[in-house]
Design a protein around this nucleic acid. Structure first.
Length: 195
DNA sequence: CCCTGATTCGC
DNA sequence: GCGAATCAGG
């Protein structure tokens, strides 16, 4: 990993925003360990960590070769039924990334043509806060809308209850207003942080 | 189990 | 300096 001013800056921001290390890692395409490690090295303000390292020894780092010769093999139970189900099934993830520009964008983008003012967040595996802000909407019978629908994933792909939001998306966007908010992360103005 | 963050230590 | 391995709590 090449910790450039740039990446360090981003790390700082994300860290400051209270994102989890794993989340930061996902956004920077690195492991959470890298994030934590670097954060620690940078002396970034530690966030509430539940653990309190008591006294305990840990071989740590590459103890692979350290194979405890501890005998006493009294465990010989090959439960045949305990087959490993797909723990993390590589489900055919629906394209929730890279919002395709609507082919027919009547009003184009109201945003600045500056293009990259925003970027799609990583696949929203666990939306920060889906917010049940769905206040009472008088929409008793939406019937079948055939237009585009919000493709924000609800639930885990591959599980029975999984579905997409389905609401009417914003013009030119794959998500509805509600989900677009969390789907797109604004590129923060780093003017006071560029140093 | 999953998640989380912190620390250690070989590289 | 880096980060995987590991620990440890929820």
């Amino acid at each position: 990993m090449e910790w450039t001013e740039e990446t360090i800056s981003r790390l700082r921001e994300l860290w400051a925003e209270g994102l989890s290390t794993a989340e930061i890692g996902r956004r920077l395409s690195i492991t959470k360990n890298a994030v934590v490690g670097k954060a620690h090295r940078l002396s970034l303000p530690p966030r509430p960590s539940p653990i309190r390292r008591g006294e305990k020894k840990q071989p740590a780092a590459t103890p692979k070769a350290a194979a405890p010769a501890a005998a006493s093999p009294t465990k010989a139970e090959a439960t045949p039924e305990q087959t490993v189900q797909a723990v993390t099934a590589p489900v055919a993830a629906p394209q929730v990334e890279k919002p395709a520009q609507a082919a027919t964008a009547p009003q184009a983008a109201p945003e600045k043509p500056a293009a990259k003012v925003e970027k799609p967040a990583a696949a929203p595996r666990t939306p920060a806060r889906p917010k049940p802000a769905i206040s009472r909407i008088s929409d008793p019978e939406p019937k079948k809308r055939r237009g585009p629908t919000c493709c924000w994933p609800i639930g885990d792909p591959g599980t029975p209850g999984f579905h997409f939001c389905g609401a009417t998306p914003l013009p030119g966007k794959p998500y509805c207003a509600e989900h677009a908010q969390i789907a797109y992360v604004k590129l923060r103005d780093r003017r006071d942080n560029v140093a």
